[in-house]
Structures are given as structure tokens and as C-alpha cells.
Amino acid sequence: MPRKPKYYVRPDGLHEAIRTISGKRVAFRGKTDADVERKMIEHRERLTKGRPFREVADEWKGIHFPTLAPNTLKGYKPALERAVKEFGETSVREIRAPDVKRFINEFARGGRALKTVSNQLLVLSLALGYAVSEGEIDYNPCVSISPPKGLQKGHRDAGSPDDEERVKKSAGVWLFPYLILYTGLRKGEALALTYDDIDRDNKEIRVTKSVYHIGDKPYIKKPKTEAGVRTVPIFDPLWRELPVGKGSKYIFSDDGGTTPISNRRYQTLWGRYVRETGITCTAHQLRHSFATMLFELDVDPKIAQELLGHSTEAMTREIYTHLRQQKLDAATKNINKRLAKKEHGSTQKRHKKA
């Protein structure tokens, strides 16, 4: 008489045992009872030792990455790859705070900016935080670690005065760079503009959405932050150049306004614009040119924050501080140059008298 199976036999013939481990139901399946028991033993041993970081990171990635915005994903993906390269086969139970500190400090020594190093630490912390939530480790070793002091804060400078002049003279070549220079909109916000967003009665532009691309295809999303939903004035130079149109058609489009411009078409137009005008800056640098204009006109940081769509006034003040330091550095350089000339002239006079 055949021996009765110890575990439940599913309709597909597989033997199955379900156990609750650390509050989670885990299913063990195999062709025989022996296979099921072997898998349960292996699972217990693995929990005792701890899963390798690579496995935990891959599981967290599968859950978390699909929820991320495309631009966030661009920063998270390489950061996770670096973390896996460093800790891949190491058990999550064996990763300690000193290991994290060493990894972050070595990464920072490559001359990387504070934002890049902070992002690397954040991604590693999120992956290990997932291990905590799954009951695989008791604490997150990243919690007590901070980026090294003295790292440079990344600042993207504005376009050069020559670039700005070229943009001002070439509105007829392509409106897009001209619009960013006079509104400070982000690239995606400008590409998402429709004729309905232009309030001609009040000479304002309503910013309510943004374009992002996956591959070549454009998609619409909300602005980067809640503060990104805003109204910006249309200054006179831009007012004279804005095309007249009606309805929800996109201003920058491949198909007459039905959909936003594709990534390939955008790159083609930007490349052509660069060749025709000779500019060397990026679209984002033109946004910084707008911020510089606000600074030079002594626009209150709170007003500038609203116009630029920054989530906090501190972000705007940081830009203002950077611009102020640039002006101070330039003034110091000019003063030293002038003093050096005077000193040289005085020295020559003394030699002649002698």
C-alpha cells in the first residue's frame, strides 16, 4: 500500500507545506515530501545566516522601482548597482555601520558632489530598510551614517552672457530656449505647455503639468513638486514672440499639437539650434539665467521661489547665495588685478627715480 504523503498534494502534483515565518506565510513546494523538507531546512539556514544583499536588493528593486518617477529612477538605478557591486554576496546580517561608512567615504573621494553621495547613501539605506521591514535584520546600519563633511554642493551655472544674447536674438529660430530664458520653466514644464495654458488677458502662463520621456515617447505628469503648479508672468519680450493658438494643443509638438514633442525630435531641434546660434549652454542653464536675472533685479527670494517653482525658500536662497559668492569672487579678482597694476606702476617709478 502506497505511503500517504506527509504534506498537501496540489492538483498539479507538487507537494506543499505552508509555514508562518516572522509573520509571513511562506510556501515550500517540491515533487516529494523530501524535497519540501529539504527546502524548509535550506530556508531556515538561510534565515539564520541572512540572505545575501544582492538577493534582498533585487527583491526591493522589483517592488519599489516601478513606483518611481523616471528622473528619480535615473539616480536610483546606478546607485543600487554600485551598492550591489560592493555588498552583493555579503549577508545583510553581516553589513555593519563601519562597512557602510567605509563604502560611502570611498565613494565620496571620487570628487563627487554632496547630492550624489547623499543619494548613494539613501538608496543603500532604503534597500537595507526593506530587510528590516521583512524581519531579516534588527536595525538599519545606514541610520547612523552621514556623508563626509566638506563635500561640494553641486551648482549648475547660468548660461554665459554671450549665450543669453544669442538666445535673445534668435526667437525666430526656435521659441523653446527663448521661452525658458524669460520664464525660468523647467524643460518638461515648457514642453507640456498648451495654448490653454496661456492667459492672454492677464499676460500669464499657468504651469500645471510636465513632460517626461520613456525612450522616445512623451508622457504627461504633474510638476516636480506641489510648488511647481504655479502662474508666471509673461514679460514683454516673450509676449511679442508667443504664437497665437487656441485649445488644448501643445505648443511644442510633432503632430500639429495633439501630443507633446518626442525625445528624438527634441534632440534634433536642440542640436540644430545649437549649430545655428552657436550657444554652448543647456536648457536647464537658461532656467538658471532666469534665476540670475531675478537675483540681479533684487527680487525677493520668496517671490523668486514662487516663480521658479521651488519647493522651499531655502532652495532659492541657496541659489542666491551661490550667485552672491560668484559676484564677490569676480570683484575680488578684479580688485587684485587692479592693485597688481598699480603696484607694478609704482615699482617702475621707484626704479626710474633711483
Rank of each mutant, 00 (worst) to 15 (best):
P233M: 12
I180E: 08
P70A: 14
M40D: 00
G111V: 02
N105Q: 09
K77R: 15
A34P: 01
G13S: 06
I104T: 06
P301H: 07
A314M: 11
L122A: 13
R3W: 07
A331T: 14
R93C: 10
V143N: 09
S146M: 05
L181R: 09
K224W: 04
T277A: 14
L80M: 12
T194N: 06
E81M: 06
E165S: 14
R44Y: 00
P52R: 10
L179I: 05
G50S: 08
Q285M: 14
R350V: 09
L181Q: 05
A340Q: 14
P233C: 12
K115Y: 06
F53V: 06
L68N: 04
Y266R: 12
L328D: 13
K187Q: 14
S146I: 01
S248R: 14
H344L: 13
A158S: 15
T268N: 12
P223C: 07
K149R: 15
I63N: 05
L179Q: 07
K153C: 02
Y195C: 10
Y178P: 01
T312H: 08
F65I: 13
H284W: 05
A314R: 11
P233Q: 14
R93W: 02
G345K: 10
D201W: 03
D138H: 03
T347Q: 13
E189Q: 11
I21S: 05
E189M: 10
A158Q: 15
P177E: 10
L191H: 04
K203C: 04
R338H: 07
G154F: 14
L294D: 03
F65R: 03
A171V: 03
M1V: 07
K61G: 00
R102D: 13
R206H: 15
R275C: 03
I18S: 08
K249Y: 11
A314N: 11
D163W: 01
H284M: 09
K203D: 11
R44F: 00
L181P: 00
L328V: 13
C142L: 08
L308N: 05
H43Q: 00
L73P: 00
K77Y: 01
L73Y: 13
T183Q: 03
V92E: 02
D35N: 12
M1D: 07
L181I: 11
R206T: 10
M315V: 15
L328M: 14
G247T: 11
E89N: 13
I180P: 00
S146P: 01
L181C: 08
A340E: 15
Y250V: 00
T332W: 05
R264G: 12
G111I: 09
L238T: 03
V9H: 05
A314D: 10
T194M: 04
P161V: 04
V92T: 05
E89T: 06
L297M: 13
I335A: 13
V26W: 01
F235D: 05
E313K: 06
L47T: 00
K61V: 01
E42T: 00
V92C: 02
Q348S: 12
N336P: 00
L307Y: 06
G345W: 04
R19C: 03
L126A: 15
G30V: 03
E134A: 14
G345Q: 14
R51L: 15
A314P: 04
G309Q: 09
A27E: 03
R272H: 08
S125T: 08
